[in-house]
Design a protein around this nucleic acid. Structure first.
Lengths: 150, 150
DNA sequence: ATTTCTGCAAACTGTTTGCATCGTA
DNA sequence: TACGATGCAAACAGTTTGCAGAAAT
């Protein structure tokens, strides 16, 4: 945990940004809730518990900054809200998501399943891939059981 | 073209919706600009050229309806705007996109490159896939050339 | 002293909703 | 006549921006 904060601090410093208390509080929330896919508002409320003076605009600005530095990835599951997801340590590519259309849960796939597909795209379409977004929409394990029961 | 309109008309009727003049005008714009990835506003302006009385709300309502019937797919490339993309005739799955981070162009991949990945997800994660969204971000053919030149 | 960052409020953008009206079964 | 569909304007939600003050270098 602490070493990840340090790491992020270094990445900020490398681009001559500071890890201010507000930014640190935001990053800590992201670390603590790494499994979740929080919206800016969610993050704001959680940060506020630790640092009540913080403003929503600062959270947005911090998230934008972290996005630019590729420390977090901004995703959008189709509801109008942006969500922010910490990159896994050392991950080159953004991980994939499984969104359940029944219960709304979001599961993560950390394995890169797109290596082959990416090669095809680079060869056949001459497109130089830098990043990707892959989301599957469907029914999660739990909801499949429930559907069978009912 | 006309047979596709007819087809959509039938799909609407099957769910007891009507293909009103406004809806038809909207669908025609989508057909004419199938290659593009238009926002609601874009579509509104184009529809307005043919049917100046139409309101933006109607366009939104039409697009929502077409989305529900899976005639169009709603996508979001990360700028805050929803874009609407006609499903290819008979396509089961949504096609993929290549978004160029230099020039913003969007290319489509109609081939389903995810068959294998989907199998893996269904087997290893017990997740029943219904649909997917796959977008690659990177540098398109044209922009690669330009970058080399400069 | 200069520059960066913050908090607040106001502004903005894309989208949705309420409601009176219109069109058609 | 009844009901879905429309146009308009107002409402809304999420996000961004301008600005004056605070913090850090």
């Amino acid at each position: 945990m602490e070493h990840r904060i340090d790491n992020i601090k270094k990445q900020l410093h490398a681009q001559s940004y500071k890890l201010t208390p507000q930014r640190e509080a935001t990053v800590r929330v992201l670390l603590e809730r790494e499994e979740d896919h929080l919206s800016a508002e969610d993050i704001f409320l959680l940060v506020k518990e630790k640092a009540p003076e913080i403003g929503l605009a600062t959270v947005y600005r911090t998230l934008e900054l972290l996005s630019e530095l590729k420390i977090v990835d901004k995703i959008n599951f189709g509801d109008g809200v942006s969500r922010y997801d910490l990159r896994k340590e050392g991950a080159e590519h953004f991980h994939h998501h499984l969104v359940c259309i029944e219960c709304g849960s979001v599961e993560e796939i950390v394995e890169d399943l797109l290596k082959d597909v990416e090669k095809i795209v680079e060869n056949d379409w001459q497109f130089q891939v830098k990043d990707h977004r892959l989301t599957f929409h469907g029914v999660c394990k739990q909801c499949q059981k429930i559907t069978i029961k009912s």
